[in-house]
Amino acid sequence: MDAIIKTTTRLLVPLIMVFGFYVSLHGHISPGGGFPGGVILASAFLLLVIAFTEKEVEKHFSEIKIGDLKSVASIALLGIVLLEVIVRPDILHLQTPLTLWSGGVTIFLNLFGAIVVASGLVIIVYSLVKEEWKSKKSKW
């Protein structure tokens, strides 16, 4: 891609990730939640993969293998199970509404759900794009 698109991507990707964390962590007060926040986090990776070539992406993401993201998703799912089954009935009525620390355990559930969705969609996007990189007809 051009230099314009690469520079714009470098500027935009951190802002998109901050917005994704905002949507997922602020989901119990404003519209949003775990699922849209996770998909926004994954769309930052999608923009990165589309704008840069294979070598530039592999240079930064070769340490973070995709299998590790699978493990991260499974640990977050385990966290959701533990929070919903064990912790949730105890601290249900702790906080006052309309402040940041409200909604009981909902904020942690939103965060873990966002992690599960984001890592899963990153795995799917990376698999599809890697198949595109392998085929020589592709223009990417």
Partner: peptide, 26 residues
């Protein structure tokens, strides 16, 4: 205690339903 009713239903009243969704996604 959460002001967003949609989020309260999804993650609190029907949280086992959401747990099933996350399991399907995983």
């Amino acid at each position: 205690g959460s002001a967003n009713i949609v989020n309260a239903i999804v993650w609190d009243f029907r949280s086992y339903d959401t747990l099933g969704e996350e399991t399907v996604l995983f």
